[in-house]
Structures are given as C-alpha cells and as structure tokens.
C-alpha cells in the first residue's frame, strides 16, 4: 500500500497561504461605510469555486489580510463578490479599492450552509446587519431551486434604513412569489414604512412549521443567540438551527489558533455551526 501511494503521481495542491491576484472590476457603495467589490481572477489565476457560507482571506497589499465572507452567486465562480464594511485599517483600505486595482485572495475556507439538509421542509433565514452578505449565496442557491423547499421566510434586520445592504435586490426578493421577506430596523424616521424592532420581534409573524424548519442565522452573536433561543422556544430543533460564527481569523486553515472557539477553530470547523453544538458555548462569559 505504501509503495502504491508513493507511486501515485503528485497532485498540484494549491498553496493555501499564497494569495492569488484578483482584479477589482466594480465597486458599489452599499451604505456610508460598506461597499461591495466584484473581483475577477487575473490571467493565470483559476476561478474560485466555493460553497455558500464560505469565506476568503482578502489581502490588501501591503497592509495585510482579513477574512471576508463570499457574498456572490456560486454559479458564477469567475466573479467573486465580497461585501466589506470599513471597520479597521485593512477593511478601510479595501473599501477604497477601485476598479483596476489588484487584491490578493486566499480561499475559499470554512464550512458552508447545509442547504441540502433544509430541503423537504421549511426554511427560515434570519440575518442581522452585515449578516446578510454571507447568506446571499445561500439565498441565490435556494431561490434557484425553489421547488426543493416548502415555505421560505427571510427576516433581515439592520440599524436603520440607510444601513440596509443590497437595497435594490431586497425589493426584488420581497416582490418574488414563494418567499416571504420581512425587513426591520432598530430605529427610523417617518419616511420608513416598514417594521422597527429586533429580528426576534418578527419571529411570531412567521408561518413556518417549527418542527419541520431549518434555520440559518447570521449576524452579531447576541442577535443569533437571542434568535436561536426564540426558535428553540418555538419548537425548531436545535440541530436544525445553523449559525455563522465570527472570530479573528489569521491563517484560515486551523493552524494558528487565533479563531479558537472552545474545542473548535472557526476557520476550519466553521464558520457555520449547528446550534446544538455551540449553544452551551454561547452562554459562556468568555470563550
């Protein structure tokens, strides 16, 4: 056996630490501090195939790199989409990137949304703030295969109406038959006719069959915790609740330990976790 293995031709394994060059082809301002960049591989760089929910490490030369979820359509692997909020030196610089510039990309990394497990039942997606971008690839995939699911509901919360990302696309999604889309904000002026309040306040309005529901949650951890607890009370099985966790990721391959989350590394074992596996950890003061 050993000799057979040794005799096998060596496969060209991509170096997970080597950023590959991508060109910024468009930049769309989503909110005052958030932009969406569309990247295309430079000549010689292969297209990047990914699963909904995975992330890339984006390298802004010479500042360094950050983990950013992929927010585009996985059926268009030559078009890599990332929505980035300016929250630090590197992300601030990334949000200033203009078409023609080069960004280094390592990835994709991490686990994806378990979309197949949600088929033949109801699906509830709850996104808060910049939790929508990591869920967008899943939404594309789900909507492309609408017939595989029963009821689909989406709840999206943001700080204010001006903090809603993908605003035009939201209107399209909301008008699409077969999907119930609720949008709520934390506070608003009188020019907002939608709901105001936390995403959890919208849960009683959902029409999903709790026992047959799979839920995908992404947003601030406290929002996911409260939402998961509310879903638990509604009767959604904890094994059917999935969350995208966020930690400070560096190597992205489970070596450096920066993103350690109890016994897991978020970069390698996540970012998508089952609520059943993490709910005890979510209640710890520090982990």
């Amino acid at each position: 056996m050993a000799s057979e293995r040794m005799a096998a031709p060596a496969e060209a394994v991509p170096d997970p630490f080597l950023p590959l060059p991508y060109e910024v082809v468009s930049r769309t301002a989503e909110t005052p501090d958030t932009v969406t960049l569309v990247l295309r591989p430079r000549p010689g760089t292969p297209p990047l195939e990914f699963s909904a929910g995975q992330f890339n490490m984006l390298y802004r030369f010479p500042l360094g790199e950050v983990a950013i979820s992929i927010s585009g359509d996985r059926t268009h692997p030559r078009e890599l989409v990332h929505t980035i909020r300016s929250a630090g030196k590197i992300t601030a610089s990334l949000t200033q990137a203009t078409p023609g510039e080069t960004i280094g990309v390592r990835g994709p990394f991490g686990t994806g949304w378990p979309i197949d497990r949600a088929t033949q039942g109801d699906l509830l997606i709850v996104a808060g703030g910049l939790g929508l971008p990591p869920l967008r690839p899943a939404l594309y995939e789900i909507l492309a295969h609408r017939d595989r699911f029963d009821r689909i509901e989406v709840i999206y919360g943001a700080r204010s109406p001006k903090d809603l990302v993908y605003y035009d696309e939201l209107q399209t999604w909301r008008s699409r038959p077969g999907v119930r889309f609720q949008v709520t904000v934390d506070a608003a002026g009188r020019d907002w006719y939608g709901d105001v309040g936390l995403v959890t306040a919208r849960l009683p309005d959902t029409r999903v069959d709790a026992a047959r529901t799979t839920a995908f949650l992404c947003g601030p951890e406290i929002m996911m915790r409260l939402t998961a607890q509310a879903l638990d009370r509604m009767g959604v099985p904890d094994r059917a609740i999935w969350l995208s966790m966020e930690r400070n990721m560096k190597c992205a391959v489970g070596l450096c330990g920066h993103c350690q989350y109890g016994p897991s590394f978020v970069c390698r074992d996540g970012p998508i976790f089952s609520y059943r596996d993490v709910k005890a950890r979510m209640m710890l003061r520090e982990v």
């Binding site: 808060g128 703030g129 910049l130 919360g157 943001a158 700080r159 903090d163 934390d186 506070a187 309040g197 936390l198 959890t200 306040a201 947003g219 601030p220 406290i222 929002m223 409260l226």
Partner: peptide, 17 residues
Amino acid sequence: GERLEMARLQILDIYGV
C-alpha cells in the same frame, strides 16, 4: 420585558459594532 430588552439591545447598537 420584551420591549425593555429590545430597547436595551437597540442602545447596544449591535449592528454598529
């Protein structure tokens, strides 16, 4: 209580951090 909790979380500005 629910509305108080909601108000507290709004003060926390959870989406802004």
